[in-house]
Amino acid sequence: MSVDEHSTPRGANGGRVVPNYAVTRGRTRSDGRELPVEALVTATEHGLAQLSALTPEYRTIVEACTSPQSLVELGNLLGVPVGVARVLVSDLANAEHLAVHLPLVGPDGRPRRELLERLLDGLRAR
């Protein structure tokens, strides 16, 4: 991944003027496994130590992930579609700047029973 320092041009209203394909250098698919939209992401100590060397998009993500963020939240934060956030998060995870926490699903593709029970307890306690 690129670690060049550069600034991202912003439009008059602060919106993005760099097209999404430029942010991801033309990639529309992440190179790793497809991360589900609810996958949670946290910064690693390594990632936080490397913050100043990261490009603005990468830095924004790692900084935000000092508390757990999902792919959809990161997409919203950056103002990019989830697919773009997925590519950027994959880059950062491959470089071990981020840790990815995937949903625990059983062989049937559904959440494991113990997760459902825990969710039920949590919701009932609200």
């Binding site: 589900p36 100590e45 840790a99 995937l102």
Partner: peptide, 21 residues
């Protein structure tokens, strides 16, 4: 999932984050 190399630095066992939807 959650291979060892992707664990947060200093993560405690059993502290794995669990997303559900």
């Amino acid at each position: 999932y959650a291979p060892a190399e992707h664990r947060p630095a200093g993560a405690r066992p059993g502290a794995e984050l669990l997303p559900v939807k």
